[in-house]
Simulated assay, not measured.
Amino acid sequence: MLKLFKKNRRTTSEYIFDNVNMFIMLIICFITLYPIWYVLVNSLNDGIDAMKGGIYWWPREFTLENYKAVFANPGIVTSFGVTIAKTILGTVTHVFFTAMVAYALSRKELYGRKIYMFIGVITMFFSGGLIPYFLLIRDLGLFDNFLVYVIPTMFNFFHLIIFVSFFRELPASLEEAAKIDGANDIMIFLKVVIPLSMPVIATIALFQGVYQWNDYFAGVIFVNNPELQPIQTYLYKVVAESSSNQMMLNAPGGITTKTVTSQSIKLATMVVTTLPIVLVYPFLQKYFVKGMLIGSVKG
């Protein structure tokens, strides 16, 4: 018993090492989280008072007028609807299409499978550039079209590699049993492979869902119609083009614009657009880690 107690005791160097690591991690967490807290605090403070500075931890003059001004603009509500729609539709189509292609490429009997994989790997490192891509989107009729958020994002080769690695580990006996029962490849994919692949499907869905929610580039480049622009593009315009001034001009009479400034509305808009994914992401982090490890270790 005494030997076990001595064996479990930490040495002085181990104790110091652990505490130094903890201190460094606390500093990193503070550096990471404090900017978010700073934006939140200033967005809840009176805009005129915030211009004086000195607000670091708590609102000095608490107010919700900034958020009232943000939601008074119907554009942000429409942008939220577009973002939710493109996130759901884009994620569902991406997972199904990528899984379908990955299932085909995971079959050893597929003719030219190695050539397809080689071509796909090349696309991960080289692209045609933005101008050819823009011309392609325009010629396909996707410019100023909601489907520009869905069709170009239906396939991702990196996600395909994760799917292929997972599909290759599924027992071949399950497919053989399904074929004996008269199932074809489509039925096997839908009724056997998909139900067994829920862990990797959940992982890829989270990858794509976060991407769809945070993507602003497609709305900036390929969409001119304000009613089709997502919330992140809306935020981009507020910050980069000072459109918050226009929001103040359009604020209804119930909002005290004397306490609202361009900067305070920018901060409130940033909180509104990023808060949903910030709240959800910590609960999904474990799936992201698992997704990166799927297929990398074989038992």
Score class of each variant (00 low, 15 high):
A177E: 10
T261G: 05
L33A: 11
K114M: 08
A205D: 05
M248S: 02
F222E: 00
V148N: 08
A202E: 00
G129H: 05
T91F: 02
L206M: 09
F222N: 11
I76G: 02
V238Q: 14
K179T: 11
Y34T: 04
K108R: 13
K68T: 05
T78H: 09
A50N: 15
S264D: 07
F71D: 11
K7T: 07
I119G: 03
M117Q: 10
W37A: 15
Y15P: 00
Y56V: 11
M124S: 07
Q232M: 12
D181K: 11
L293D: 08
F143R: 08
R113Y: 02
G182Y: 00
L142Q: 04
T269Q: 06
L40T: 11
T93L: 15
D46E: 11
T123K: 04
M198Y: 14
K52T: 15
I231A: 12
I115G: 00
F167M: 04
V82K: 09
I48W: 10
L44P: 00
V289S: 03
L110P: 05
V70S: 09
I137E: 06
Y67R: 07
E14T: 15
L44G: 01
N184H: 06
M198K: 13
L147P: 00
S13G: 11
K7A: 14
I88M: 10
W58L: 13
I151M: 02
V238K: 04
E14R: 12
A99I: 08
S296Y: 01
Q212S: 14
G128Q: 12
A218T: 06
I265E: 14
V210I: 14
P230L: 04
L130R: 06
W37F: 13
D18W: 12
L26Q: 10
C29T: 13
F283R: 00
L267V: 13
K6F: 08
T256L: 13
L279S: 02
P59E: 09
I221Q: 04
K237D: 12
M117T: 07
I162E: 05
G129M: 07
A240E: 10
T257I: 13
C29Q: 07
R138T: 15
G53S: 02
V70G: 10
V82Y: 03
V164H: 00
V101C: 09
A251C: 03
I255Q: 14
S127T: 15
I88C: 04
A172V: 10
T98S: 01
L105S: 05
R138P: 00
S197Y: 05
A251Q: 02
T83N: 08
P282Q: 03
K3I: 12
M25W: 14
I161S: 02
Y116H: 01
Y103G: 02
F143W: 06
S244A: 15
T259K: 14
F97S: 12
F222R: 00
I84S: 03
